[in-house]
Design a protein around this nucleic acid. Structure first.
Lengths: 138, 138
DNA sequence: TCAACAGATTAGAATGATTTTAATGTATGT
DNA sequence: ACATACATTAAAATCATTCTAATCTGTTGA
């Protein structure tokens, strides 16, 4: 079977075979150029509503994990019972709206580059994330 | 019953009555001037090893939550199945060592102040956290 | 093309952190 | 010392995530 090569490549490069279920996941995640912040539950709900096929939770989890590992998705560090992912993998940061439990992008240009002077012997910095928690301003 | 006023105040200001169990939790958390990064499981383990009294999980959770809410503890935003807390509530940031699942403080002076230009109408920034993930440097 | 097999899918079970419950105990103001 | 509001507790419930093991499918080489 052949699939949209756009998605097929992403999958193969993430170490996954293209299958109906995974292509469907790709369609939801990568169809639009817009940033998309989601939890696994969100993703499953969207697939259920759109799709003619059923995708099991296990498949959603392992596909998202593979994309995250490969760097096609980014997991956002926030304290929440669920993991949040972002389809915008460019270097940028986030507001986390604590009233609504919602992430909002902060463009790279809206934050001066974070310079960390401290170093740890034998370790290198893999990523730097800025999370600004916001609440209603009264 | 009367207790060490140092801990009694912290508890009362967090909206909690001082009790044997909560004082014990305070002793573990606030005895030292040193920074202490911990999970609930860590805390329970330390109490079990040190204490002559038993403290239930529920009590540990609700006491830690009250301190966090009041600001005597800070929850650190990282992606982990468990929540991490820090007894160092001064303005500072963190490395998260992904090899060892361990937090390391980064002093405020080791990071230039993070300035965010973007604003969200009706919202104010409550906190800004920088998390730098580190891994073994090969 | 097609058999064989490595990898994928699935429902459901297992895990593990956290929260809730409901019965019993205790600090505190009067 | 009493009444009562708040605490404590063990155990159950919840919920995201991971694992399992049976079944299925994409892929490769003959």
């Amino acid at each position: 079977m052949t699939y949209d090569p756009k998605y097929e490549n992403k999958l193969r490069e993430s170490g996954l075979r293209p299958t109906k279920q995974r292509i469907k996941i790709c369609e939801v995640l990568f169809n639009s150029t817009e940033t998309f912040h989601f939890t696994i539950k969100d993703l499953v709900k969207i697939i259920e509503n759109q799709a003619n096929i059923k995708v099991s939770l296990a498949t959603v989890y392992n596909t998202v994990h593979a994309f995250n590992k490969k760097g096609y998705l980014k997991e956002i560090p926030i304290n929440s019972s669920q993991s949040y992912y972002d389809t915008n993998i460019s270097h940028h940061h986030h507001f986390f709206d604590e009233d609504e439990n919602k992430l909002i992008d902060i463009d790279q240009n809206d934050v001066d580059e974070v310079m960390i002077k401290k170093t740890i012997p034998g370790k290198k910095i893999k990523s730097i994330e800025v999370i600004a928690k916001i609440v209603t301003d009264n």
